[in-house]
Simulated scan of single mutants.
Amino acid sequence: MARHSRRRNANAGFTLVELAIVVCIVGVLAVIAVVGYRKLVLSSKLSEAQQTISAIRIAQEDYRAERGTYANLGVNFCPSDGSQQKKWAWDPNCNGGTNTWSVLPVHVDGPVQFGYRVAAGTRGVADPFTTGVDFSGADATVPWYIIQAHADLNNDHGLYTELTGTSFGNQIFTRNDGE
């Protein structure tokens, strides 16, 4: 009878192999959760830039309807320092180099992660900053604008995330999406 109760006690616990398998499964699930969380955070940061670019597009179309051309705000980013992983209050009096943002009534809720700049031109005027977007199929006889959002989302001081929108289409192009 004593032998039978010893076997029952020996079979009641987990073996080292079973514990190792459980630890591996928990580790894999933790990695999946962290990756999913990072993608969610990145997606929320990118959506700020997409919404602001859409707001700037609407403001540019209103500006053109009133004045016949698009507003050229210059090549400087506003807010000027998109190189840190922090947010800044939106300043409509920020000077992009040609005009202040107050000429475009862009309303942003809360602080922004990205710096923004808008260049505009007319027939034959070249893109004043490198956007990485191919404009070869665009009609060069009409006024145009380019909106660029710029931030260092992963705080490595070297690989900046850039989103670009243009008057040539409704697409927003993303380069170096922070991964």
Rank of each mutant, 00 (worst) to 15 (best):
L46G: 12
S47P: 05
I58C: 06
A65I: 04
S43P: 08
L42S: 09
N11D: 12
Y145I: 01
S43N: 14
S167F: 01
V28G: 05
T98E: 07
F168H: 15
G178K: 05
R57W: 00
F135H: 12
K86E: 12
A120S: 13
Q51N: 09
A119H: 01
A55T: 00
D134L: 08
E179Y: 13
G165Q: 00
T122G: 14
Y160C: 03
A2M: 13
F114M: 01
A65D: 09
A151P: 07
N154T: 14
A138K: 08
Y145W: 04
R67G: 08
R38P: 03
D81V: 10
T174I: 14
F114P: 00
N176M: 09
N95R: 01
T15S: 14
A138E: 09
A2H: 14
R7W: 13
L16Y: 10
F135S: 10
Q148L: 01
R6E: 14
T161I: 05
T122H: 12
N170H: 12
T161C: 05
G132D: 04
R123A: 11
A151Q: 03
Y37K: 06
I147N: 00
G124S: 07
H107W: 08
E18M: 07
R8H: 14
A20C: 12
V28K: 00
I53C: 02
T98D: 05
I172W: 03
V41A: 13
V133E: 02
R123K: 14
T130Y: 03
L19R: 03
R64G: 02
L42H: 07
Q84E: 10
L42M: 13
H150K: 06
A120K: 07
G158Q: 15
C94K: 02
V41P: 04
I53V: 07
R3G: 15
A30R: 04
G124R: 06
H150P: 06
T141R: 07
S167M: 04
C94G: 02
G121W: 01
R38A: 08
T52D: 01
H107C: 08
M1E: 14
A151M: 03
S47N: 15
K87A: 13
T52Q: 01
A89Y: 07
S44Q: 14
A140G: 10
L40V: 11
R64Y: 06
N99F: 11
T164G: 05
P111L: 00
I146R: 02
I172T: 08
